[in-house]
Design a protein around this nucleic acid. Structure first.
Lengths: 164, 164
DNA sequence: TATTGTTATACTCTATAACTATA
DNA sequence: TATAGTTATAGAGTATAACAATA
């Protein structure tokens, strides 16, 4: 590698602060969701995404940034279905696809859990931020997320080594 | 609650972008650490923290923002010890405490894994950011982390309900 | 052949509670 | 009594590979 194998101290500091802050935030968020709705963060995201999308998505659409393996989504969908929060059925457009639909109970649960969820985000994340800060944070994270999403999924991975 | 149970759209957008971006970043980081050093992110953090702190810390000091239960740390320390990356021994100052020491192998592993790790952070996180952006991100996340760390651990939790 | 989704399985990790020992 | 750490155990979640069905 031609590049030096280090980040500037500022970058390193930003990186660790980011990771730790989000870890703390996620931990509190999970606690709130579990306590008030018996949901994991992933399950909440799946439901919220459905609620946002007219209530129906295919499994693949649903998986997008939330889950990193097909079987993981099947597992989570199984739990949500068992709990009566979603329904799975065949898709008219593509017979391979499964269409996931949020139930009334699912939508109600999201609505019930949301206020507390929002309160956690506000008190932990937004409390120390000014309006300008929020703008900047949103701008930065939106750009970063876009960059990450656009990256070649794994073509940049190191060429497969021959030594197993 | 006197406050409206919603976040401004800007806040909501920033929140979800933050959570998704870090989720993507963490996933790639874990892949790199697993591939190049057979380490989880948590294990890497523990080793890195030790390497940063003259090589020895008590379990409690080590746990700080990294792990959220005592037994979880004992479990991870057990793995690291079994792999020869750390050593555990009694503390001279407090006989209740366990003093964790990083081994040469542990320090070497951190050194071996670090370049790839840094490269992931650079390409995913810092690539789309200007110097000013990095400053702002660092400032924001440092403040947010400080705010979260300062919060009353759980005294703000809703008073225990009487209905179990 | 490629894609969508499920299943089986094995593994990692986490958390609660009970316990020991020291401060 | 409170704190530091370990253990036992049980449950949640994850990922890989093999599979079936449709495009």
């Amino acid at each position: 590698m031609a590049e030096p194998a280090s980040l500037a101290p500022k970058q390193l500091g930003a990186y660790f602060a980011l990771m730790e802050a989000v870890s703390l935030l996620q931990h509190e968020v999970e606690k709130q969701l579990r306590a008030e709705g018996d949901l994991s963060w992933i399950q909440f995201q799946l439901l919220a995404r459905l609620a946002d999308s007219d209530g129906r998505l295919t499994m693949t659409e649903l998986a997008d940034g939330v889950v990193y393996s097909r079987s993981g989504l099947t597992y989570q969908a199984g739990l949500l279905e068992k709990a009566g929060l979603i329904t799975r059925g065949p898709s008219p457009d593509d017979e391979r696809a499964t269409l996931v639909t949020i139930t009334e109970a699912g939508a109600a649960l999201v609505a019930r859990v949301l206020p507390g969820h929002v309160e956690v985000a506000r008190s932990l994340l937004f409390d120390p931020l000014s309006d300008t800060d929020v703008d900047r944070l949103g701008d930065l994270m939106t750009r970063i997320r876009g960059h990450m999403r656009a990256l070649p999924p794994r073509s940049a991975a190191p060429r497969k080594r021959r030594t197993p």
